[in-house]
Design a protein around this nucleic acid. Structure first.
Lengths: 226, 226
DNA sequence: TTAACATTCAAACGTTCGTTTGAATCCTTA
DNA sequence: TAAGGATTCAAACGAACGTTTGAATGTTAA
């Protein structure tokens, strides 16, 4: 009478994480009940509290599972580029592509649920709950520091304050692009199949971000610096 | 014994809308209970259902109250610019500023709650609930069409498909910038007071978006067009 | 085989949710 | 002042929520 024979043993945790990823993306954290979640995962209602402790701890686990390797890959890619470059600073474009590539490639991962996660992630940067935003910020902190330092070396002429703003804008563009994948588009007209082509999207986004990052400084900034 | 003497008559609707705006921003739609909301508004628990019909109808009213005038102002500003220009196409920068100015100016409106709304709005573009996203898209549609046409005239050499993507990116940057005001920043370093200076922010953002919009086309796009 | 531990299970816990109800009160108009 | 509609009120509705419980079942090692 039990389904256990069909399920791999010791993988209830993984099935719960997969189900949570998809349902959190579809309905949000508060809109996803433990009953719906455990049903989708083929687990008992009590399984989440047994394996993770609470719903909030599950949310945290969902992000840790994907974000830690993703940011590690970002840092590794940056270090590889820096090693190849010898002592010379990297180009801004290379740094941008190293940062956005890691997330954009996950859009194509429909099998293991990477696309679900990446949409969820893009939205969670602006989640109403402060602890959740703080968690994201904490998981990003090491990579963020490394990339900021790389940009400073790549663009020595740019005022530090201005760089921070432009990184902020770049990050926002990426976050929205990730979150808006699959969703209703405000602007009609783009071919739906292009939304899932990571290589094409990376080139489009990199061109946009690179130009924005290197935009001429406006006089109002000069006035402010005076 | 009643508080009514202290409250302006016939303005329960407005007080509810104001409270909803702030609480939806702080805790999200599902995280805001009718009990907390009506308590903050100084109204009875049943007041929302009496005046609006349901919680969902209240959410819709919150957005209609602000978005309709905001997009009307956008269109009016665009028409004013076009009238002043005679038959000549506008500059891309003028179009960008006409679009982002309307929302950025609301950041400084702390008295009537405009800042609350603008943060709420920035986040809601990527809300998990499809009906909510559809509402936003519907309220934006008329302005979006006008601005797209203006960009096409301003940048006749740009392929239509590319323009759509770049508008998408621009819109995302704006949405994130609005949503992230007041919140924990991923990148440390920018002066907090600058986040509320609409003029400064508009110049910074306009410079970034203008450069991104006019970025050189990458070869991958050429290959795709072939 | 048996003891010890890990996991799953059905059931119930107390709380909070959005909504509804019908009486009480306010406000306008006649 | 009386009537009638608009609004507010306290109270309750049933449903759904996250979590806990203790017994049942599965797994591992002596």
């Amino acid at each position: 009478m039990t389904l256990r024979a069909l399920k791999p043993p010791h993988e209830t945790r993984t099935r719960i994480l997969d189900a949570a990823e998809e349902l959190f993306m579809q309905h949000g954290f508060e809109g996803t009940s433990m009953r719906l979640l455990t049903a989708k995962a083929g687990a008992n209602l009590a399984a989440v509290n047994y394996h993770f402790g609470s719903k909030n701890a599950l949310i945290e686990a969902v992000f840790r599972r994907r974000l830690d390797p993703m940011n590690a890959a970002r840092i590794a890619e940056l270090e590889r580029l820096e090693k190849d470059a010898g002592g010379r600073p990297l180009t801004a474009e290379a740094i941008i592509r190293a940062f956005i590539g890691a997330s954009l490639r996950m859009i194509e991962d429909t099998k293991s649920g990477g696309r679900n996660f990446i949409r969820l992630l893009g939205r969670t940067y602006t989640d109403p709950q402060k602890p959740i935003r703080a968690l994201i910020g904490q998981l990003y902190a090491p990579a963020m520091e490394r990339f900021k330092a790389a940009f400073v070396r790549a663009l020595p002429q740019m005022p530090a304050e201005e760089l921070v703003w432009r990184m902020h804008f770049m990050f926002g563009t990426l976050a929205y692009t990730l979150a808006a994948t699959d969703t209703v588009q405000l602007i009609a007209g783009c071919k739906p199949e292009d939304r899932y082509d990571a290589r094409l999207l990376e080139s489009r986004l990199a061109a946009f971000l690179l130009a924005g990052l290197r935009a001429p400084l406006h006089n109002i900034d000069v006035k402010k610096a005076a």
